[in-house]
Amino acid sequence: MRQSLADRSMKYLFLLALLIITCTIIVFLVSKLSNYEKQIIFFEKYLKSNYTLDDTTIKEFVKVFEILYKEFPYVTEYVYPIELLAIGIVETNFKNIKGDNGDSLGYFQIQAPTYWYLKHYYPEFYQRVNFFEPWYWDMVKERPDVQLMTSILYLYDIKLRYGEEDAYSIYNGGSEAYKDKILLRLSILETEFKEFNRR
């Protein structure tokens, strides 16, 4: 009888220990977001706190990052949301405008030849966001998702072909001054991102 009670007690203790371990692992996994996911959240909150962009635009931006993270993770190994935040700030301060005498379009100032190149080499990304239209201002000004996707693909393509070191200057036609602006902005954003993660 005593042996039976001891066996039952051991079973209950074992099950309790197993339950505690399982709960601990689940809590750890849920709370441990990847750096990329944290950057997506930071990107969204930064825009909401510092710009007057409408919620739909911000949601479209976030959706692009989520698509890449889930479906094209190899891109997320090279290009991070914080980089696009820096580019959007330096290029237009997140205004959806024409620049360079009308040659560059949108928040991230992409030019039509760049778009055509990217659409030819990375068609699956544009198919994923249902964009089959030509890269004309009237068609892209209402598509922040396409603008962001194009900017990400452009930076990704540059990094693959020319390496990390020259990517930012090449993004802006080889300008070292532009690269310095991006690096400075990235430094500021990374400090803010660390603070954000501490909260």
Results as ranks from 00 to 15, higher is better:
172 N>L: 08
62 V>E: 01
134 P>M: 07
74 Y>C: 13
25 I>N: 13
39 Q>G: 04
147 Q>K: 00
117 Y>D: 00
66 E>K: 04
86 A>R: 00
35 N>P: 13
123 P>V: 01
179 K>S: 14
152 I>W: 00
59 K>A: 02
193 F>L: 05
69 Y>D: 08
12 Y>T: 11
148 L>G: 01
168 Y>C: 05
26 I>L: 11
158 I>C: 15
86 A>S: 01
170 I>P: 05
130 N>A: 15
40 I>D: 04
2 R>F: 14
145 D>Q: 07
161 R>F: 02
25 I>C: 13
150 T>L: 09
106 G>K: 02
167 A>W: 05
179 K>A: 12
74 Y>Q: 01
9 S>G: 06
183 L>P: 04
99 G>T: 12
73 P>S: 02
9 S>R: 07
120 H>G: 06
189 L>H: 02
58 I>D: 03
146 V>H: 01
41 I>S: 13
118 L>Q: 06
10 M>G: 14
119 K>D: 10
170 I>D: 01
71 E>F: 14
106 G>E: 09
8 R>A: 00
115 Y>P: 00
117 Y>G: 03
95 K>Y: 11
195 E>C: 10
156 Y>V: 00
77 E>Y: 05
109 Q>K: 05
20 I>T: 09
154 Y>F: 05
141 K>D: 03
144 P>S: 10
96 N>R: 01
143 R>T: 11
22 T>V: 13
72 F>H: 09
5 L>K: 14
30 V>I: 11
181 K>P: 06
159 K>E: 09
137 W>F: 03
79 V>K: 00
54 D>N: 12
154 Y>W: 14
40 I>T: 01
76 T>I: 03
96 N>C: 13
43 F>D: 06
118 L>K: 01
33 L>C: 08
20 I>Y: 15
61 F>N: 03
153 L>P: 12
